[in-house]
Structure formats: structure tokens, C-alpha cells
């Protein structure tokens, strides 16, 4: 079935966006990325380490996976804008996963700084994919300032707590005119399937794969879950009922 994810006019046949953090080695990461089927994958920007062996960029290049730099580690709009511009210069892409966090304990998005940075980067020609709270109002504001997608969290980064407020995710999906990507909090395959069943256009995850006991196997599980959830969303679930509805014809 031809059902691409389209972000800012670019088509992806996979609706699973992967992160690369947490993998024990580049070899394990490589196998997991292949098993996931992802076509778009995030990286962080950090000071060059002269002792580093190999580069995540080489892994992505060999596999033909598009790179999506993030602004992880930024606490203010100014820091995030600067890091996005450095990423654009280093990687030759104007796409950015915009992350502006409020504190180290929750890693929750800082909404005011996030919106400020999103507006500035969108005006500067960036394709901005903001990691945001599961707040329908903030999602709307991010879309209004020109974001190409909105990426609400299911629960805090790396927590594996799944989607804590499914109702809010549904509200965001209902009113959004840009793709909604569920980002952060996925713990296992069923969480990814639920995100897609709620109508999300895609799922972004890292920890649940890279820190699984078997990353490659979990990556395949996520690929299948995202596909299954998408198909279920398109097919339309039956309404929930209080009482039984016989699935066999009455006796006679």
C-alpha cells in the first residue's frame, strides 16, 4: 500500500523516525536501523572528539538514511537557534528536530523558549520539527509560526512510560494541519501501535530500541507496530460497546 509520510513536501515510505542515542556500538545501531526500516534518523551535535572511532554519519550515509540533527542539550531559544545553524553548516540540511528542554530531571520541553526558537528558525528557512509537550494549544502555536510538523511527547524522554495522555494526542491530531509525530516515551511495540491508532503520522523513538536487550529485534517489532497501527487507523476501529454484540448468527 502506497501511504507515504510527507513532511514539508518530502516523502518517506517509513513512518518510523529513529534516534541514535543509547546504542552500545555503531555496529548494533547499524543493524537496528536497518531492521527498523527507517529513512530519517536523528543525531546530536557535539564538540569533535579526536579519539572517536567511526562516525554515526558514516552509518547513515552507507544506509542511505536521511540525517535529522537535533538541538538536544539546549535550555534557551538562543542556544537552540545557534546549534541548529551549526548543524545546517555541518550537515548541509535545513531540517532540524528542535529540542529546548526545561531541566535535566524531566527533560520536558520549555514551551516559551521552544516557541521563540521555532519562530526564529522557521523565518530563517529551516524545516522545523519541534519536540513539544502533549499540549494542543502549544502544538497549534508551533504550527502557526511555521513548523513543518509537531512532535508531542508520549511521556518523558527515555522513560518508556508510553502515552500518558492519549486524549491530548487525539486533540492535537484532530486540529493539526501538519504531521503529528509521537516523540518520546515509547517503551515497547504496543505503545508505537497506539500512537499510530490515535492518528499520529509517525513515531520517533530511540531508547526503546537502542537500550532493549535485543535492539535489532525490537527495531523490527517497532517497524511492524508502526505499520500495524497505521493500517488499523486507516481501517477504522469498531466502536466500543457496553454489552456484547453477537458475531455469530442467532440459532435457527
Amino acid at each position: 500500500m502506497d501511504d507515504p509520510l510527507v513532511i514539508a513536501g518530502e516523502s518517506f515510505s517509513s513512518r518510523l523516525i529513529m534516534g541514535t542515542g543509547g546504542a552500545p556500538s555503531l555496529e548494533v545501531l547499524d543493524r537496528a536501523l536497518v531492521a527498523s526500516g527507517t529513512e530519517l534518523t536523528t543525531v546530536a551535535m557535539r564538540r569533535v572528539d579526536p579519539a572517536a572511532a567511526g562516525s554515526v554519519l558514516d552509518v547513515l550515509a552507507v544506509r542511505g538514511i536521511r540525517v535529522l540533527p537535533n538541538t538536544a542539550g539546549c535550555f534557551t531559544a538562543a542556544e537552540a537557534v545557534r546549534l541548529a545553524r551549526l548543524a545546517r553548516e555541518a550537515l548541509g540540511t535545513a531540517w532540524v528536530k528542535l529540542e529546548v528542554i526545561a531541566d535535566e530531571v524531566t527533560l520536558l520541553p520549555e514551551p516559551v523558549e521552544l516557541l521563540t526558537a521555532a519562530e526564529e528558525l522557521a523565518a530563517d528557512g529551516f524545516t522545523v520539527l519541534p519536540y513539544t509537550n502533549d499540549d494542543p494549544v502549544l502544538a497549534r502555536r508551533l504550527e502557526q509560526v511555521g513548523c513543518a510538523a509537531v512532535m508531542p511527547l508520549g511521556s518523558p524522554i527515555g522513560s518508556g512510560l508510553g502515552i500518558r495522555n492519549q486524549h491530548n494526542i487525539e486533540l492535537i491530531v484532530e486540529s493539526a494541519g501538519v504531521p503529528v509525530i509521537l516523540d518520546a516515551g515509547i517503551g515497547t511495540a504496543s505503545d508505537a501501535a497506539i500512537a499510530m491508532e490515535l492518528g499520529c503520522a509517525g513515531v520517533l523513538l530511540a531508547t526503546s530500541v537502542t537500550r532493549a536487550r535485543e535492539p535489532e529485534l525490537m527495531a523490527e517489532a517497532m517497524r511492524l507496530a508502526v505499520t500495524a497501527g497505521r493500517l488499523a487507523f486507516l481501517a477504522g476501529r469498531v466502536p466500543r460497546r457496553r454489552y456484547a454484540l453477537a458475531s455469530s448468527p442467532p440459532p435457527g
Partner: peptide, 8 residues
């Protein structure tokens, strides 16, 4: 001097 590393 910055480059891309595993993250996100």
C-alpha cells in the same frame, strides 16, 4: 568545532 554524534 562540532560534529554529529549519536543522540536523540
Amino acid at each position: 568545532v562540532l560534529t554529529a554524534v549519536q543522540g536523540g
